[in-house]
């Protein structure tokens, strides 16, 4: 007799996702690291750049710009010297660095949602509820994915305010959002969050604690962060089509990881790991 309705299942998925987020919000040990990195990256850094640009003698970035391919450097070099630093850093270089935020948030939240249940010994009582395996998995994913993307977007909104407020006296126009930022925010950032989830889902199946999951996940995620840092220093360049392409590749990898994680997410497997 199958009596579960779609609304009941949606209810259950929502309840689990909400519970996970509520519980995480109350863990200082999880929340603080989650907020410090975005704060430094999206508030402190653009503030420093803005102050530097308003300085009587702003740093000259033209020599650095000349080393970059013409496609990117030319429009920046065409700007007044005081605007070049703002546009280069806030408009281009911080965009890939920003991706650390959804990646890290998704990884931390997913580790808490998957490995954390084992560590807190709450997994068994969850498995005893009449919720299909697939819904449990979906709830856990959403409980990490939605807050990770939402906080990233809120972070970007703060970033945009700080950048434009500090840049206005110099540039007299909005520096962000640009088309590149729009693609990064709405296309690449969710993909990167999904990638963080995909990695942590796999890793959490083997880990018995959140810390262990974070350590194992870090081994996979750290190289991605280094790639973003390398990108932001100009070693690699992202043009708009490249950002769209990179986003697509990340989505494909992330979704295949999540799909494989879903296949392995069975009650029997989890109950044997309790």
């Amino acid at each position: 007799m199958k009596t579960t309705t779609t609304s009941t299942r949606a209810n259950a998925v929502g309840a689990i996702a909400l519970k996970d987020f509520t519980a995480v919000r109350r863990s200082k040990g999880v929340v603080l690291p989650m907020l410090i990195v975005p704060f430094l990256l999206l508030v402190v850094l653009p503030l420093i750049v803005g102050i530097a640009a308003r300085n009587a003698h702003p740093p000259d970035v033209s020599s650095m710009l000349r080393t970059l391919p013409g496609g990117l450097a030319r429009p920046i070099l065409a700007l007044p010297p005081r605007e070049r630093l703002l546009v280069l850093v806030d408009g281009y270089l911080l965009a890939p660095l920003f991706l650390i935020v959804p990646l890290m948030l998704a990884a931390v939240l997913a580790a808490d949602a998957f490995a954390g249940e084992k560590e807190r010994k709450t997994l068994e009582s969850l498995l005893h509820q009449p919720v299909p395996d697939r819904d449990l998995f979906l709830a856990k994913l959403l409980g990490a994915f939605v807050p990770a993307v939402a906080i990233s977007w809120i972070g970007f909104a703060c970033f945009a305010v700080v950048v434009n407020l500090t840049a206005w006296p110099v540039a007299h126009h909005l520096i962000v959002p640009t088309m590149l930022w729009t693609v990064v925010i709405f296309w690449v950032a969710p993909a990167v969050a999904a990638l963080g989830l995909g990695v942590m889902v796999r890793v959490s199946a083997r880990a018995s604690s959140t810390q262990e999951a974070n350590q194992l996940g870090g081994a996979v995620i750290l190289p991605l962060i280094f790639l973003a840092v390398g990108q932001s220093t100009g070693l690699l360049l992202v043009t708009l089509p490249a950002a769209i392409g990179i986003g697509a590749v990340v989505w494909i990898v992330a979704l295949s990881l999540v799909a494989r994680g879903a296949q392995r997410f069975t009650r029997d497997r989890m109950a044997r790991a309790i």
Binding site: K19, T22, A23, R120, K121, T122, E124, S125, L126, H128
Partner: peptide
């Protein structure tokens, strides 16, 4: 009712 109670301490 599981042996460990299964309650989330943060709630």
């Amino acid at each position: 009712m599981t042996e460990q109670s299964g309650l989330d301490e943060r709630l």
